[in-house]
Design a protein around this nucleic acid. Structure first.
Length: 367
DNA sequence: AAAGCGGGGCG
DNA sequence: CGCCCAGCTTT
């Protein structure tokens, strides 16, 4: 441990801090569906869903997930398309692919019992340092740190830690701090309380210090510098891609959809056939025709203009998609990544939100 | 160590 | 518009 951390810890009444924090949590915690019991499977699912995702967004997904897959065995037995469908719209789809893989591992090789040690649980796909600590502390009562963005923000203020939280190595500094601070009698409450404090009081902008239960322990508040913390270097700009997409229907009321590759952006999700718009193409429609003929070898008849434009923002990328409607030659041959499906069947597949918007616009105009 | 990976909401 | 969110994996 660094000397600076030791020095800071010596200024904090750890027992009093634990008491003030946990008492507040017991009194003020939100009533959330994953707090009804400490079933390791449910805790695990909730922690994966909550990665980079707000509580309000997760709640309906969590309820629907547990209704469809109430036990770890039922989820292990799910097929891949159902797994993606239940996650549709939640984002970061590798989370659910990894969770499914890990759950099958637990059911197959651990008798359906989620491992309760750092070494074993960390071997599971998608279980990193945060999730391991969260499941071990919340479901098993082990005094392991669970350091997420909330915890780094809260502790950077309380302990006046000025290291860049955007750096991967910085997490270890906070884990060392938590190991010193954590209440060994109540690890679950302690970890959850730190995160709850970050969500409700010690917020990124304008923290509610006057309502804070651990204000008296906070070195940043003492110096009046809470708004300067945490230190976080900012990221680079996103790039932009223009796409043209097609909603193509044949004379049997079937639509052409395509499965994305199993790696990379939106892996394994379904979409309407589309192509990156080449800057050298003057006309979207000309580029689209070229793609349809060359890549799909389709004979199609397109409507005149795009029926919708969809702008979509990712963390690292933005899309502008112009979507065209068209008729499809009934006798075409399609590659294995394509499917022809009816309107009802289409909606059983998992689509990214951008393509859901295309579909909604299509139905509104042509249905 | 840095980049890739979703989507929604807020100021 | 940028930033934030109960992060992990790959390169």
């Amino acid at each position: 441990m660094k000397d600076s951390l030791k020095n800071t810890l010596s200024q904090i009444d750890i027992k009093q801090f634990q008491h003030d924090l946990i008492s507040w949590f017991i009194e003020e915690q939100r009533d959330l569906p994953w707090r009804k019991d400490a079933d390791p499977y449910k805790v695990w699912v909730s922690e994966i869903m909550l990665q980079q995702t707000k509580v309000d967004t997760v709640i309906p997904y969590f309820d629907r997930f547990l209704k469809k897959f109430p036990t770890i065995e039922s989820f292990a037995a799910a097929d891949d398309e159902a797994v993606l469908k239940i996650w549709e719209g939640l984002g970061y789809y590798s989370r659910v692919r990894n969770l499914h893989s890990a759950v099958k591992e637990v059911v197959g090789n651990y008798g359906g019992v989620v491992p309760d040690t750092q070494e074993e649980i960390s071997k599971l796909k998608g279980v990193g340092p945060y999730t391991a600590g969260a499941v071990l502390s919340i479901a098993y009562g082990k005094p392991e740190p669970a350091v997420d963005g909330n915890v780094m923000r809260v502790l950077s203020r309380i302990m006046l830690i000025r290291e860049d939280i955007a750096k991967a190595s910085t997490r270890k500094v906070f884990e060392a701090a938590v190991r010193e601070l954590i209440d060994h009698e109540h690890p679950s409450f302690f970890n959850q309380a730190l995160m709850e404090l970050g969500a409700l009081i010690c917020t990124p902008t304008s923290p509610a210090c006057l309502l804070c239960p651990v204000r008296d322990h906070c070195l940043a508040f003492e110096d009046g510098v809470q708004s300067e913390l945490p230190i976080k270097s900012r990221k680079k700009k996103t790039r932009h891609v223009d796409l043209i997409a097609t909603v193509l229907k044949n004379n049997k009321e079937e639509f052409l959809i395509r499965k994305r590759p199993n790696k990379g952006l939106l892996a394994g999700l379904w979409e309407f056939p589309n192509v990156e718009r080449n800057i050298h193409f003057e006309q979207s429609k000309a580029a689209l025709q070229a793609y349809l003929i060359q890549d799909l070898q389709l004979e199609t008849k397109l409507e005149n203009g795009a029926f919708v434009r969809v702008d979509h923002v990712f963390t690292h990328l933005t899309w502008t998609i112009d979507a065209f409607a068209g008729e499809l030659n009934p006798n075409i041959e399609i590659g294995q990544e394509y499917k022809l499906v009816t309107k009802d069947a289409l909606e059983e597949y998992a689509f990214p939100v951008s393509h859901q918007k295309i579909w909604q616009a299509y139905k509104k105009q042509f249905a």
